[in-house]
């Protein structure tokens, strides 16, 4: 297998207002292979967003290096898109749902013959058919997140980074969105790196999980999730292996 993303001893410290600097990430290293679904699980404030911003080339690491498809990351890589934790702030309030998704296609600059048709297809894929002419603020949080995902997919990235994508939606919507995401991943074969503080979500979705410690974050453990696919909200979560993994990760994090 080929690593599509390599994180090599990345550290990041922030300068505080009082002049002190805090270490948010401490020499984190891991790799993601092409087509994989990988999750990073860690408690809130451990540096997950910081790490994704580094990988997305939006915030340079203090030390260490990043390689995406054999190219060192200095600035945003062209074949990777980050779906932000604050997805509602990331949507364009002045564009309709269709307009937001079209943005992803326009950004690619690969003039497609039927951009409208392509955008509509993606909107349908995330389950928002009929809302093309609506505006982001007319939708619920879960629907807004679907728009953000459709817009990211429209760009056609090889790697999709997702920052606690379902953190601010209700529990039911969350389960629905997880399944939508898995279906998309299976259909499109996009490599996905997702961060979350929800242990069960990570297990349910991933091929592999990196357990991240409290700040300054380090990788505590790598866990291969050998649960069969396609996964199912009831049977997968009821699997004895699922429980075992959950308990193990929980023990790690709460140490």
């Amino acid at each position: 297998m080929v690593a599509i993303l390599e994180v090599k001893k990345v550290s990041k410290s922030y300068r505080q207002l009082d002049g002190e600097s805090t270490l948010a990430i401490d020499e984190i290293s891991f790799r993601v292979e092409k087509g994989e679904f990988v999750s990073l699980v860690g408690p809130s404030g451990c540096g997950k967003t910081t790490l994704l911003m580094c990988i997305a080339g939006l915030n340079p690491p203090s030390t260490g290096g990043l390689v995406v498809k054999d190219v060192e990351v200095h600035g945003p890589p062209s074949n990777l898109v980050l779906v932000f934790q604050e997805f509602n702030k990331s949507l364009f309030a002045w564009r309709s749902i269709l307009g937001n998704v079209l943005f992803g296609l326009e950004a690619r600059e690969k003039r497609s013959q039927d951009a409208q048709g392509e955008a509509r297809r993606l909107i349908k894929l995330v389950g928002l058919e009929g809302f093309e002419r609506h505006y982001p603020w007319e939708l619920s949080g879960g629907m807004q997140q679907r728009v953000a995902i459709a817009r990211a997919l429209a760009y056609g990235p090889e790697i999709l980074l997702m920052d606690e994508p379902f953190g601010s939606v209700d529990a039911l919507t969350r389960l629905e969105l997880e399944d939508t995401l898995l279906k998309i991943w299976e259909d499109l074969g996009t490599t996905i790196l997702l961060v979350t503080h929800d242990i069960e979500e990570a297990i349910y979705l991933s091929d592999r999980i990196y357990v991240v410690s409290r700040r300054p974050s380090r990788i505590l453990q790598t866990i291969d999730v050998d649960l069969s696919r396609p996964r199912h909200q009831i049977t997968t979560r009821a699997d004895a292996k699922f429980m075992e993994l959950r308990n193990e990760i929980y023990r790690q994090i709460s140490q």
């Binding site: 997305a56 939006l58 945003p76 990777l80 898109v81 980050l82 932000f84 002045w94 943005f103 760009y155």
Partner: peptide
């Protein structure tokens, strides 16, 4: 402007001028 909007433009590979035109101008409208 919400900084996340500009980061959105950047992660979608937009250059500085495109970000000015496509994101900053409408957001500041």
């Amino acid at each position: 402007i919400e900084p996340t909007l500009i980061d959105t433009g950047r992660t979608f590979g937009l250059g500085r001028w495109k970000i000015l035109k496509e994101i900053i101008l409408p957001a500041a409208m």
